[in-house]
């Protein structure tokens, strides 16, 4: 208990310097991910949809849509809600956006 309290904000500043700040590449990646998630949320705003349906509405490849929908599902922002043919349906969870 004698140790001084960790000041993470100060450490973060040093860490940021050590990492050489945020690269443009990384910023672009983060922006693209935010846009992707936003597009998926919009596509699901009208109600449950399958991956190919979301892909069609967002104009993104199915593989990318599936990966992001599964990420959202893992962290509780999307839930599975039934099946349509060979595909499952996904819906936004309340407060998930």
């Amino acid at each position: 208990m004698s140790e001084p309290k960790r000041d993470w904000q100060k450490d973060l500043k040093v860490f940021r310097e050590r990492m050489g700040g945020l690269s443009e590449e990384k910023k672009a990646w983060a922006r693209e991910q935010r846009d992707t998630l936003k597009a998926i949320r919009q596509a699901l705003a009208g109600g449950p949809a399958t991956i190919p349906q979301i892909a069609e509405r967002t104009g993104m490849p199915g593989k990318k849509v599936l990966w992001h929908v599964m990420a959202m599902k893992r962290y509780g922002k999307v839930a599975e809600c039934g099946q349509a043919g060979d595909y499952y349906l996904y819906e936004l969870k309340e407060g998930g956006s």
Partner: peptide, 8 residues
């Protein structure tokens, strides 16, 4: 599911 489109 398969990775390209989530098909069963």
């Amino acid at each position: 599911l398969r990775p390209s489109d989530g098909k069963i």
